[in-house]
Structures are given as structure tokens and as C-alpha cells.
Design a binder for these strands. Structure first.
Length: 633
RNA sequence: GGUGAGGUAGCUCAGCUGGCUAGAGCGCCGGUCUCAUAAGCCGGAGGUCGGGAGUUCAAGUCUCCCCCUCACUACCA
């Protein structure tokens, strides 16, 4: 990976049916990190993101708002772009599937595939889910109608459709998946392989039921049809480079893509359909497709109805975009689902960033000024601290190959932090304050130099994750982060002598959560089904005996007849409200299948229904006398 | 139902082809230094390594059975 001359990577293009959420931010931030790293290394890098804007869902969403699809798409697309700009995402191109060049490119590709004989016309009939933009197999339907994925009703559609001969490429795809192993993480690869092995059906790739999409190439002359959104969308990776335009030089330069980063939900499209399309038009396949997981919040799935969706902008505003970036990349192994909680985020900022990194910088700023007027020199580091230095170099040596290119950012960062640990330990081990007392000034100076160099390494390798923060660190240490410096660090070249700058703490302690607690509108979650209700057996009972439980303020011991062979003993907390004698002979409502419990050492085999408010407690009783044991429904 | 992954310290997880007293980070407890953002450093807490059986001189690490979780997929309701 490190030997490529160019590096082309992409995020998915985001569907404009929704405003950006943490998942979009996560994907994009990973991609941005890889892109920045690649550039820092001196590789000619092209980083693409954008928005996916066609399809029936968009058409309908726009109509609801009284807008044209284009107006609506413009609006949402702009939100993505704004967010990425705010997040300093270093994309080289932001593509929109409504761009004219893209549309031309899709038409060109369609025509190519058509000419090759990979596309044929037929009919498609089936249940179609507008929301998911896909047909649902009859067997999958819930209640013969509802979409199993989103739960919304499907529509029966019979329409003329063009089909892509996906089945033709089954073996080739399988071979590619198995031999090239393009999918990260590998556990996902198995899923895709299984999917392909079970047989690929030809894919319906046009629709006639709506208009908001790319028209078929005019050569085919079939104006009823628009191109299926997924075909349309996937080709963005090529059209963004100018495929289908007069100038295809970027395609030549950057294709094939080195990396498509996707969410696990759309892996199949990228790992099966996309390669098949590419094979059909005779293009090379992407090198890697990396599928990441979802984010949950405080352990719960995020959803609009729960009102616990994380707005990435809110987090960034409260905690800083770079801290947020660090958190997301450090917190979760690539591919796994991650959990967002403010506590976890704060812990990362305070511990990792504040204590380990920021504070280490402060430690040497303090010492440098206390002992040497701020001067720092690398002069005697090799002489006194060769071990520490080589340990750190050892870590740097292969984190890139082992972790970064494999998207293992959490490991990458973990490794990097070991360097900070070496630094923090070294200070405690060699105790510069004692060195100074003992007149070993050179050794103290070298120690500060060592730490400065360790910090420089970390800053350079962390630059892709936290561009601004690391630039500040570099500035403090009298250097600039660039490719030259990157290479110098790798060659073991130490920092020039410099005067360290005094700066305020980079990561002030966060004492309490900073995000506004929005009123979470929760759907009532305690709705139960009728079946669940009937699990509770309620019966009318008559109180036969009643007596006080001594030593208890609240309890009465009752013998209740539920029309069973024997009386039930029920311990009820109603002593403050009812006297035993006024209960005997009256009817009550009893939960009869409650698990027996011991109260004050006595068995209680049921529970009385009662209502309690400020004015006291009242038993619930049948309005008219009923036979004992009558079930209550 | 099929396929795959996984069940290891309070939490999140490492533990490759079987082998010294089962590890890391966070959290917690104790100790300690003072350059520093009450940060750092050191030490500890002692987890039947999901359960059971087996192979072996030796098993989280291999075999078999069972239980549970998750993912993908199928199908019956």
C-alpha cells in the first residue's frame, strides 16, 4: 500500500433523504484521516465524497415539501457540504449525482454494458418498497405486505425493466473476493462470499414508475426508463474522475480506487454489484472495500423515534472537532459497532489527550524554562537515552502497514500512545530535577530533548487525525509538519535545537458534560401487547380472615378465597388505610399468578389491586358482587 | 434452519502454529515524586478463561457435546 504512486479513496455518496448524522461523520472522518496520511507521506491522493440525489424516495420527499426534487436535493446536499467544510474534511471533489458530467458518465456506462450484451429488457413484477428503493421477495414480507427492513407497506409493481446480467459475473466476483481479499474486515468478507455463492440473480436496473433519475442513453431511445439509483450512485466513483467526459486523464491517473469506505449496510452493493458493473465495462476493480459498523448511543440504537440521534455538529461544537475525531477513531475497532457516550468522550479527552499528550508537552515546557530559559537541544539524546529513542522508533516503524492502511485506527492510536508513555516514564525514571541538583545538566537537557522528539514523532503521526492540534504542537517545538519532516522522522533525524514556546494547555480538563441535554421525546416504551397483559391473571377474591402483622407498620395478613381448594395467604401493605375487621367478607381484586414472596417472614401468594394517591389508598373492588375466583379481564 | 464470528478481570478487549506464576487499557484501592492540566510513575486488586467430557507430560489455546450472544442468510409460521 505504501508503494502506490497515487491513492484514490472514497466515502459513499450520501443519500439526501436525511441530514448528516454521526454515521456519515464517522465514515468521512476515517476517509479524511487516510487521505491526510497519504498526502503527508507524499502520495498523490484524491479523496472523493458527495451526495446521491436520485430516486423515488427523493422525488416523494420533495413533493411533500412542495419542492422540486432538485431544489430539495440542493438543500440537503448543501448541508453535507457545509458540515464537511466545517469539519475540515480535505476532500478533493464533492460529487453530486445530479451533476451533468455524472449523468453523462452513467449513460455512457449504461450504453457500454448494453452494447456488450450485459443488459436486456424484460418485465419485473413484485413488491416494491419505496423507502428502501428495493424489491422485496414475497417470502420476506411481513403480513404479506410490509417491508421487513423498514416496516412500511410495499407496493406491487409490474413494470418493464432492463436487467443487468449479474449472474454472468458470479464466478468472476467470487474468484476476485477469494483471491484478492478486498474486503475489510474479514468477517464481513465471509458474509459477502456466502451471499455470492448462494447464487446471484440478474439485477433490475431501470424503473418506469417515477422520473427523478438518470435517463437512459438516447441511443437506446426508451424515455420511460430511468436508471436504478444504485447503478447511478455507484458510478460516481468513476464519473468523479471524468469518466464519460472529454477529459479522462484523472481516470487514467487514479483508477482503480485504492479504497472505498462504506457502512456495513451497503457493503453488498460495493462488493458485488459494483465489481460486476466494472467488469462489464472492462475496468479494474477497487483494491479495498472497508465496511465499518454503526454507532449506538449510551448502548442503545439511535433512532429518530427515540430522539437520541447524535448530531455531529453539536458534539463538535461542544468538545471540538479534532477531539471528536480522535474519539471516534480511537474508541472502536474498525468494523465493529461503537458506542457514543459523553462520558466515554470526556474520558478520552481528559485521559488520552489531556493527561498523556497535552500534559507531557507541558511538563517539558515547564522544565525547559525552569532550567534552560526554554532552550531545547537534541544534542546528547543518543548518548543518554538511546534505548528510549529506539523503542519509540520501533513503534513507528510498522504502525502504518500493520494498522493504518487496514483501518485499524484504534490500534494505530494505541500504539502511538505508547510513545507518550515512554516519555512520561522517562521523566520519572531519570528525574531531571535531581540531575540538575547533581550538576548533570547535559543529561537533563538531553531528557527534555528526548521528550520533544518523542512528541514530534507523535505529532507527525497524529497529524492526519488532528491536523490543527498537531500543527500547534509542532509550532511549539519549532518545526512544521510536512512530507519532508515525515521522512526525516522516519530516517531518525532529530529535531534542530529550538526555543520551546509557552502555550496554554491544549486540552483543558473537562469537568462536566458540555452538551445541552435536549429533551428526549421518548415514545412510550411500556406499551404491552394484549398477550402480555393476559399473562397477568387477575381474579375476584373474598377476604375470609384478616389480621395485623405485628411489628409492621404497613402490613396486614389476609386469607383470601379465590375459589380454589384452599385459601391464599396474602400479605398486603394496607394497614395504614384499612382495619382488618372492615375487610373481612369484602371482595377484592387479586393478582393470582404472582410469584410468591416472603414478607416479614411470611409467605405472600398474591397481590391486591389498589390505587394510591395523596389522599390515601383505595382497594379496587368489583362494583357488584361476583363469584369468588371470577377472572378479571 | 443454514453459515460465520464470538463468549477471558467491574467495563472494553489482547492472548499466533498447545508449554514458564493468564495479559493490556479504563475504572477502583494503596504508595510515591514534583517538571506538569491534583497530571505522572510504581504496586495491588486475584478472573471456575460460557458449561461438560476427552486427547496430551502439558489446554483459554486441539477434539466432541451442550448453553448463550451477535452478524449474514433461508424458510416455516
Amino acid at each position: 500500500m505504501s508503494d502506490c504512486k497515487t491513492y484514490y479513496l472514497t466515502t459513499p455518496i450520501y443519500y439526501v433523504n436525511d441530514v448528516p448524522h454521526i454515521g456519515h461523520a464517522y465514515t468521512t472522518i476515517i476517509a479524511d484521516t487516510i487521505a491526510r496520511y497519504s498526502r503527508l507521506k507524499g502520495i498523490d491522493t484524491f479523496f472523493l465524497t458527495g451526495t446521491d440525489e436520485h430516486g423515488q424516495k427523493i422525488e416523494e420527499a420533495a413533493r411533500k415539501r412542495g419542492k422540486t426534487p432538485k431544489e430539495y436535493a440542493d438543500e440537503i446536499s448543501a448541508k453535507f457540504k457545509e458540515l464537511w467544510d466545517e469539519f475540515e474534511i480535505s476532500y478533493d471533489k464533492f460529487i453530486r449525482t445530479t451533476d451533468l458530467e455524472h449523468i453523462k458518465g452513467v449513460q455512457k456506462a449504461f450504453l457500454e454494458m448494453y452494447k456488450k450484451g450485459d443488459i436486456y429488457k424484460d418485465y419485473y413484477e413484485g413488491h416494491y418498497c419505496v423507502s428502501c428503493e428495493s424489491f422485496v421477495a414475497p417470502s420476506q414480507l411481513v403480513n404479506d405486505e410490509l417491508c421487513p427492513d423498514c416496516g412500511k407497506p410495499t407496493r406491487i409493481i409490474k413494470e418493464e425493466s432492463y436487467f443487468f446480467k449479474l449472474s454472468k459475473y458470479q464466478d468472476a466476483i467470487l474468484k476476485w473476493l477469494k483471491e484478492k481479499k478486498p474486503i475489510l474486515p474479514e468477517s464481513r468478507a465471509n458474509e459477502v462470499i456466502r451471499f455470492v455463492e448462494e447464487g446471484l440473480k440478474d439485477l433490475s436496473i431501470t424503473r418506469t414508475s417515477f422520473e427523478w433519475g438518470v435517463k437512459l442513453p438516447k441511443e437506446i431511445n426508451d424515455p420511460k426508463h430511468v436508471v436504478y439509483v444504485w447503478l447511478d450512485a455507484l458510478f460516481n466513483y468513476l464519473t468523479a474522475l471524468g469518466y464519460g467526459s472529454e477529459d479522462e486523464s484523472l481516470v487514467k491517473k487514479y483508477w482503480p480506487a485504492k479504497l472505498h469506505i462504506v457502512g456495513k449496510d451497503i457493503l453488498k452493493f460495493h462488493a458485488v454489484y459494483w465489481p460486476a458493473f466494472l467488469m462489464s465495462i472492462g475496468y479494474e476493480l477497487p483494491k479495498k472495500i472497508a465496511a465499518h459498523g454503526w454507532w449506538t448511543r449510551d448502548g442503545e440504537k439511535m433512532s429518530k423515534s427515540k430522539g437520541n440521534v447524535i448530531n455531529p455538529k453539536e458534539v463538535a461544537d461542544a468538545y471540538g472537532i479534532e477531539n471528536f475525531r480522535y474519539f471516534m477513531l480511537r474508541e472502536v475497532p474498525f468494523g465493529a459497532d461503537g458506542d457514543f457516550s459523553e462520558k466515554a468522550l470526556i474520558d478520552r479527552i481528559n485521559n488520552d489527550l489531556g493527561n498523556d499528550l497535552g500534559n507531557l508537552l507541558n511538563r517539558i515546557i515547564g522544565m525547559a524554562y525552569k532550567y534552560f530559559d526554554g532552550k531545547v537541544s537534541s544534542r546528547d539524546i543518543e548518548k543518554y537515552y538511546a534505548n528510549e529513542l529506539s523503542e519509540a522508533r520501533e513503534i513507528i516503524k510498522d504502525i502504518e502497514e500493520k494498522y493504518l492502511w487496514k483501518m485499524q485506527t484504534h490500534k494505530y492510536l494505541e500504539e502511538l500512545w505508547k510513545i507518550l508513555s515512554i516519555g512520561n516514564k522517562a521523566i520519572d525514571t531519570y528525574k531531571p530535577w535531581e540531575l540538575m541538583k547533581n550538576g548533570e545538566e547535559d543529561k537533563a537537557m538531553a531528557l527534555i530533548g528526548l521528550i520533544a522528539n518523542l512528541l514530534a514523532m507523535v505529532a507527525v503521526y497524529l497529524h492526519a487525525v488532528m491536523p490543527k492540534t498537531t500543527s500547534t504542537i509542532a509550532d511549539t517545538l519549532g518545526f512544521e509538519i510536512n512530507t519532508e519532516r515525515f521522512n526525516a522522522i522516519n530516517e531518525g533525524i532529530l529535531l534542530n535545537d529550538f526555543v520551546i514556546k509557552k502555550i496554554p494547555p491544549l486540552f483543558p480538563k473537562i469537568e462536566k458534560p458540555l452538551m445541552k441535554k435536549e429533551e428526549v421525546k421518548k415514545e412510550p416504551e411500556n406499551i404491552i401487547t394484549i398477550d402480555e397483559f393476559f399473562k397477568v391473571e387477575l381474579k375476584v377474591g373474598e377476604v375470609i380472615e384478616a389480621e395485623e402483622v405485628k411489628k409492621s407498620k404497613k402490613l396486614l395478613k389476609l386469607q383470601v378465597d379465590l375459589g380454589e381448594e384452599r385459601l391464599r395467604q396474602i400479605i398486603a401493605g394496607i394497614k395504614e388505610y384499612y382495619k382488618p375487621e372492615e375487610l373481612v367478607g369484602t371482595q377484592v381484586c387479586v393478582v393470582s399468578n404472582l410469584k410468591p414472596a416472603k414478607l416479614m417472614g411470611m409467605m405472600s401468594e398474591g397481590m391486591l389491586l389498589a390505587a394510591k394517591d395523596d389522599s390515601g389508598l383505595s382497594l379496587i373492588r368489583p362494583e357488584k358482587k361476583k363469584k369468588t375466583g371470577t377472572p378479571i379481564k
